[in-house]
Simulated assay, not measured.
Amino acid sequence: MIKIEAIVRPDRINIIIDALDAVGCRGFNVQNVNGRGQQQGVEVFTGRGATTATRTSLPKALITTVVSEADKEKIIDAILGSAKSSEEGAIGDGKIFVSPVSEVIRVRTGERDEAAL
């Protein structure tokens, strides 16, 4: 089993969710988070636009799902294809982290691993 975490632009969430549904991703979680990466923040106008300030932490969304090894590539491809803000992509579009999961247990039934997904 594989855990896929994608940090993406919050305005792309509905598009990404539609792409995940289209490839059969049954379950995922979405969280609103703040952070920064290569972008190192952005300059924003404050007040009536007379002054600027650097906002170092930007709003992002974190999508987390655990899938079988066989579904890993189609889930990653769905996220990659729907998270880009333009054809070539742009700084700030996000990152995908993939890590192994050693065990999954469904609380309601006690089912384990693949049966719990």
Rank of each mutant, 00 (worst) to 15 (best):
I63F: 01
I13L: 15
S99Y: 09
R36W: 08
I7A: 01
D21P: 01
E114V: 14
R55Y: 03
R26I: 10
A22F: 03
N32T: 09
G89H: 09
A83V: 06
A116G: 00
T54L: 15
G27V: 11
F45S: 12
Q31S: 15
T54G: 03
G81Q: 08
F28C: 04
A6R: 03
T46G: 11
D11L: 13
R48I: 00
D71A: 11
F45G: 00
A115V: 05
K74C: 00
Q38N: 13
D18T: 13
G47C: 06
V67R: 04
I13C: 13
S68A: 10
Q31E: 14
I105K: 07
K74H: 05
V98Q: 05
F28Q: 01
C25Q: 01
G110M: 01
K60C: 00
L80M: 14
G94Y: 04
L117Q: 00
L80A: 06
T64V: 14
K72S: 07
L58G: 06
E114Y: 14
S102I: 13
Q39C: 09
A115W: 02
D11N: 14
A78R: 13
G49K: 07
A61N: 02
G94T: 07
E5R: 04
V104P: 02
N32F: 00
T46Q: 11
D113C: 04
G110K: 07
I7P: 02
V98E: 13
I105Y: 08
G24E: 05
S85T: 12
E88W: 15
N32A: 06
A22Y: 07
G27Y: 10
T46R: 12
E5A: 06
T56C: 04
A53E: 07
I63H: 02
R108V: 07
L58Q: 03
R26E: 13
A50K: 10
T56N: 14
S82H: 06
I2A: 01
E43F: 12
G47D: 05
